[in-house]
Nucleic acid binder design. Structure first.
Lengths: 225, 225
DNA sequence: TTCATAGTTCGATCCTAGTCGAAGCATCTA
DNA sequence: TAGATGCTTCGACTAGGATCGAACTATGAA
């Protein structure tokens, strides 16, 4: 035993209801304060503080002080990915008692995965860009083709800035509801930001659901599919 | 809160030391009896039995009775993948106290990931087959090219049998030590089986380490790289 | 300065869940 | 049949950790 990395440390961190609620809330991508997370998790501020300190020590969170507020976000894209991975397992091995409610259906359609678009719409987006030759794929490290660069620049994405960044431009992220990949990485994030700026999508404040406006859905279809 | 699948159920299952040891042991790919797993986890048979029943109810294991023995294996490739995902997180966010021992180094070099080859050697294998045009990649669903089919058949893999199976032929699996993908799926498994049959590799009985013989390492190099 | 708000620390309580001994089934061997 | 082995169930014990009230610190507002 005791081979490889210490998996227990992380799994037990995620395995507490309050902490799981905190992490799930942060999957929305927005940084949240300790008080907000306490409310989200359904515990008092004291207990939340204790949990947050543990998650932070465990390397799952990135805290930032701002005045008398303390904002928390996920430490890293890889944290979000691991969480989605667990959700995938939970969804498939889940007992039937988790009946699929209407809210759940909305989540499957379109939701935010940390900072990019996930769900059916997110999967469509990636597969369309691949089949149109904009993205060339080999594993997690997808790459943007020349045609793709022209396309996204034309769509209003500031490519040079993204490329100057160290983090990978295109990455895959496994979608727990669709069981296929959607587009992550800084491009995935930039596209999603652009959707919001154009008014195509609107993020639900409390859940991770992404609402497409009627126009937004149409334009999304025309532009990408 | 309470959105999406019940992540806590699974994370708390993995988050217990004894259970994590059991799962890690099963990552070796071999089905093991309850007694063997008890020894592996360092607990008595009674406690192991309790843990095994929980893991089974949680959908993470596949038990098989055989006479008075009860063999357990991981329920699914996806379970192994999720575990590797957690290991990836643990490895990067791990505190420095997990010093990299010699055994750890061997694990990074080559190990068995459920039923296929992982570690540096596994990553080399996939990337070589991709660059030689044997595997064509788009996400988790990689595909074997015509040239690739000829190549692996020539190497001694019984392709028709594999293809008649429902499970995917080529899949990616993220490697926690290399942070790149290696080859999973039924082909990954078949290749690894072939390595063992040819005497290139030998599996350590107790750990997940894969030892290459001197000849094996040379032939592996010549054949694939 | 004083007051209010955000967050942390401490201490006490309480409860879950892991653990193992002992007894009970089930299956194989002789 | 009797005996041995593999596993499960039951019951009791215990430790660890989640929880919250109360007190404390830090920042901002008046």
């Amino acid at each position: 035993m005791k081979e490889g990395p210490d998996i227990v440390r992380i799994a037990s961190l995620i395995g507490d209801p309050a902490r799981a609620n905190i992490l799930t809330a942060l999957m929305g991508g927005k940084a949240l304060t300790a008080s907000e997370l306490a409310a989200e998790a359904g515990v008092t501020l004291q207990t939340a503080s204790s949990h947050l300190s543990k998650l932070d020590k465990g390397g799952l969170l990135r805290p930032r002080k701002q005045g008398r507020h303390k904002y928390f976000s996920l430490a890293d894209d890889s944290v979000a990915e691991a969480l989605e991975g667990l959700m995938g397992l939970a969804a498939r091995s889940g007992h039937l008692r988790t009946r699929t409610g209407p809210k759940d259906e909305a989540l499957r359609q379109a939701r935010v995965c940390y900072n990019h678009l996930a769900g059916a719409k997110g999967v469509q987006l990636l597969s369309a860009m691949q089949s149109r030759g904009f993205i060339d794929g080999e594993g997690e490290t997808l790459s943007l083709t020349d045609a793709g660069e022209a396309f996204v620049s034309d769509f209003g994405v500031d490519l040079p800035t993204l490329q100057s960044n160290r983090s990978p431009l295109c990455r895959e992220c496994l979608d727990w509801s669709e069981r296929r990949s959607h587009l992550a990485g800084s491009l995935g994030r930039a596209l999603f930001t652009r959707f919001e700026a154009l008014g195509w999508t609107r993020c639900d404040r409390n859940t991770r659901v992404v609402h497409f406006s009627a126009d937004g859905a149409r334009e999304f279809q025309e532009t990408f599919l």
